[in-house]
Design a protein around this nucleic acid. Structure first.
Lengths: 348, 348
DNA sequence: TGCCATGGTGGTAGCGCTATCAGCTATAAG
DNA sequence: CTTATAGCTGATAGCGCTACCACCATGGCA
């Protein structure tokens, strides 16, 4: 008489599958994980048993037995909500597959001391690795703290990551270049640019892309009005006002992110300018904002969720004892999203 | 000669703490978890040892040994990004504390069949419970599917949840009432209301709150123009146009969420109306949008992260074998956030 | 013919924690 | 003074899985 174990929730285990397939638990485990050194016939028998019993491995047991990393930190700071939610979706998907937990920590302040403090929180909770989405990927206070604690990290969406560091990003340069070409192809010859926050290297990369496209088209870069922005809506207002106050205002504005582009549209409306008939506006990032405005924004889409997934996967590879990272740097594809906020320039 | 176990990552375990404190591992475990039946002196010794060794429990081992729920589903559908990110932050915090994984699943379509399909994905991945943020909390196709599979769920932010169901929410009625009172107190006597999507009971509750405040102030409810919206920016545009096209347009617009309020502001600007001098606009939810617009929006803040945390905690309580839920319904406090988008009505 | 590679498989021993129960000490009750 | 009762503690036995080795067939090579 086999009384069922008191604690068991009656779920299917490797043992059940092994019995069903007529092999050992070990072989089932091998099939489930990559499965090197298993004969094809055996593998199929196991897979059939898994399907029949509707088995799914217990991730707690798996991480415990494998001694895997279980806590991965994610330090975020004042991200756009749209960015963060996409990022979390991607990170969670990867985390669940790997059976590890995501530990979030907000890093509010701008001061190095506050940032270091938030980072230390991670060290105390024993996270085994940390993911740094922008703009934290660029903050040395955070990176130094992690370095000191010997915790590996992956930076995401840096414009120009330091050599040899783990990072996942898009090609900001190429994307900005393509967007600028799009404006030029529409007929714009006088394009205003709003730069991003200089504390992020992607700002410089986007500006470089803009410049490259202008020069490649044989236009006079010096004639293009450029304003400094800081990725915030407010800074976009100031920059847009400055651009539109010029004696000869541009016919198109390329803002380094969507928030600032939204600001440009708002300023234009206040001045009675119609977008896109009188002024074209384009952004960068394709956040939710881009489609909750009127007109909807032409912008560059970053595969945010995929980048988060890639970052977590890369980090776990790094953490795995034997496994060395084959590519410490991963560049994912961006996409130009054309919507209604840009049109050929008005005829004079 | 004790060779260290091959797989150990050198982390501190209960055994280490037990040795340090001069007690058994079991006692340490008791102290760490609630700690019933432990003498005060013993507890302190254990806590001291924990602090000294900087011990933190291994959540994988814990869930495995305790046979706890490890996978909680979260079905989301076209939420505002701001809502989702806040929600995930709260849910993740609770999930990590409980040592369970969050399994996300997007439920895109509107059709019952698609919704049921997405839900079945959960059943196959063996989630032990499901959290339903709005608007899915109201979708019967989803709930029926979960019911059929015997998976418990918690609904979040329903306006008027069915009796006896697990749910976490705010008092939409009271919040809308307070907001309306705020407008009346400012001197508004002719207030336009944009309703939310009728597929969500919170829409009706917010409208009820509006009506109650109007009547309580002795105003004529029938004189207040009301338009149907669907929580989207687009629907807000249509509704706002209708309100402002009236022969006698309202001096204030109360939109049932921030997206529609943002639309109202946009429409007003297009018509050359200044907000808040010519028209006051208020929203509901306090999403990120409320502060990335100009002027910033007066709105109602829902404690989204706290609601998500409460929902997950409630679900885990329900799942715990012995533990019965003491309160299947939990109402959290909302907050009126006053910003720049509303002012006394213009003098005639 | 022997012998070592090699690919495939199973047995064993934990990973770090907690449920269970037995035992042990104090206090209350008989 | 015994017995019942409660409070506190520890030994044991797993939770479901995988690392590690031992093992057994092959088959190629000397």
């Amino acid at each position: 008489m086999t009384k069922p174990s008191r604690r068991s929730r009656g779920s299917i285990t490797v043992q059940d599958v092994a019995r069903e397939a007529g092999v050992s638990a070990m072989t089932v485990s091998r099939v489930v994980n990559g499965g090197t050194n298993v004969r094809e016939a055996t593998r199929e028998a196991v897979l059939a048993a898994i399907a029949k019993l509707n088995y799914s491995p217990n991730s707690a047991a798996r991480s415990l037995a494998a001694g895997e990393a279980t806590q991965i930190g994610l330090l975020y700071s004042n991200p756009s909500a749209a960015y963060l939610s996409q990022f979390l979706i991607g990170a969670l998907a990867a985390a669940r597959r790997a059976g590890c937990h995501l530990v979030l920590e907000a890093c509010e302040g701008e001061r190095a001391e506050e940032q270091a403090e938030a980072t230390r929180g991670f060290v105390q909770t024993h996270v085994q690795g940390v993911i740094l989405p922008p703009p934290l990927s660029e903050v040395t206070a955070v990176r130094d703290e992690l370095e000191a604690a010997g915790i590996p990290w992956v930076s995401v969406a840096m414009g120009l990551p330091p050599e040899g560091s783990l990072n996942v990003r898009i090609d900001d340069f190429a994307a900005a270049c393509a967007m600028t070409k799009h404006l030029i192809d529409m007929g714009h010859r006088h394009i205003g640019f709003i730069r991003g926050n200089p504390n992020q290297t992607s700002s410089a990369e986007r500006y470089r892309g803009f410049c490259a496209a202008i020069e490649e088209a044989g236009l006079d870069l010096a004639a293009m009005p450029v304003e400094q922005g800081y990725f915030t809506f407010r800074s976009g207002i100031v920059a847009s006002e400055a651009l539109l106050d010029l004696p000869e205002p541009p016919t198109a504005i390329f803002a380094s992110n969507d928030d600032m582009a939204a600001a440009a549209v708002g300023v234009a409306h206040r001045r009675g300018l119609h977008v896109p008939q009188d002024l074209s506006v384009v952004g960068f990032d394709d956040t939710a904002l881009a489609t909750t405005m009127w007109p909807e924004l032409t912008t560059v889409r970053q595969p945010i969720a995929a980048m988060a997934e890639a970052a977590l996967t890369m980090l776990l590879d790094e953490l795995r004892p034997g496994g060395k990272i084959d590519a410490p740097e991963q560049v994912l594809a961006h996409q130009l999203i054309v919507r209604e906020s840009c049109a050929p320039p008005p005829k004079r």
